[in-house]
Design a protein around this nucleic acid. Structure first.
Length: 266
DNA sequence: CCAACGTCCTGCGTGC
DNA sequence: TGCACGCAGGACGTTG
């Protein structure tokens, strides 16, 4: 489940692999992943850069059009220099000067859009976690309108962009906040701690090239290293690193949620 | 506006 | 051993 650190890790590696190169050809193997436009519109254009917004990636070209990607659950963008990466899960590819970018996606929740550079597919997307203008005081009023538990609200991309199921659990564990706590009861001080923790954990994860829990791969096909540093996600019945109580797994809004019942009592 | 829940999809783990 | 089934979840659509 590529979240902000995973998408950012892909962005950095892929940028080094494809920046400045020309798109000669392309192929969509699974048409329903293409949500707007046509890759053919980008043939003979040059890749100028690659950007991230939340969990979205945007490849900018020397035309008014960009290619936007969302990796969904199991999507990956792979740099395939020697044409050895083709398999049954490749859903699209771009042929560049000296290799291919493969869009590989097992569960096919990923999406591609060809749209104007300044007309992205996201709407009402929330703050970037590293945006300095994101402070507790600017979103506390919106939080206080939500009766839903804080863990589920952290997954809402319209509030803060980029948090997914893994980091929502990790951040609340780091801040000793119970995932079931109604968002409206979160204090401004707690929200400040949450924002800070999102930044610290995201940065640490990016430094390890993200979390490979099962399917995530970097654009060179390798796994991210942050799974070794997860404290609670996927750790049901393992001892809490802080107090040794068994980590619990519960389901909130149909999503697995992991927490320490002692450290995160409140 | 918000919440609840279904939908999409395929590999894998479980249980009979 | 083999097969059926349920689970995993990001974003969005529908319903209330």
């Amino acid at each position: 489940m590529p979240e902000l650190p995973e998408v950012e890790s892909v962005r950095r590696m892929l940028a080094a692999q494809i920046k400045g190169k020309r798109i000669f050809k392309s192929k969509i193997l699974l048409p329903r992943i293409l949500k707007s436009g046509s890759l053919a519109e980008l043939h003979n254009s040059t890749i100028l850069g690659i950007h991230r917004r939340g969990k979205y990636l945007q490849i900018n070209t020397n035309t008014p059009l960009s290619i936007f990607f969302h990796l969904g659950m199991t999507g990956s963008l792979l740099w395939d220099a020697d044409s050895t990466g083709m398999d049954n899960y490749i859903r699209a590819w771009l042929e560049l000067d000296d290799g291919r970018v493969l869009f590989r996606d097992i569960r096919t929740f990923g999406k591609i859009w060809i749209r104007a550079e300044n007309d992205p597919p996201w709407s009402n997307i929330g703050y970037e976690p590293f945006d300095p203008s994101l402070t507790a005081d600017v979103i506390i009023l919106r939080l206080q309108k939500r009766s839903m538990n804080i863990k589920t609200v952290l997954l809402d991309q319209k509030l803060i962009a980029g948090i997914g199921n893994i980091y929502a659990s990790e951040v609340l564990y780091d801040t000793n906040i119970n995932p079931c706590k109604p968002a409206k009861e979160i204090t401004e001080d707690e929200l400040t701690r949450i924002i800070n923790s999102i930044r610290v954990i995201s940065k640490a994860s990016i430094n390890s090239s993200g979390t490979t829990f099962r399917d995530f791969r970097l654009s060179n096909g390798k796994e991210g290293g942050f799974a070794n540093f997860l404290k609670v996600y996927g750790k049901e019945n393992d001892p809490c690193p802080k107090c040794s109580t068994n980590i619990q797994r519960i389901v909130l809004s149909q999503r697995s949620t992991f927490f320490c019942p002692i450290c995160q009592r409140n």
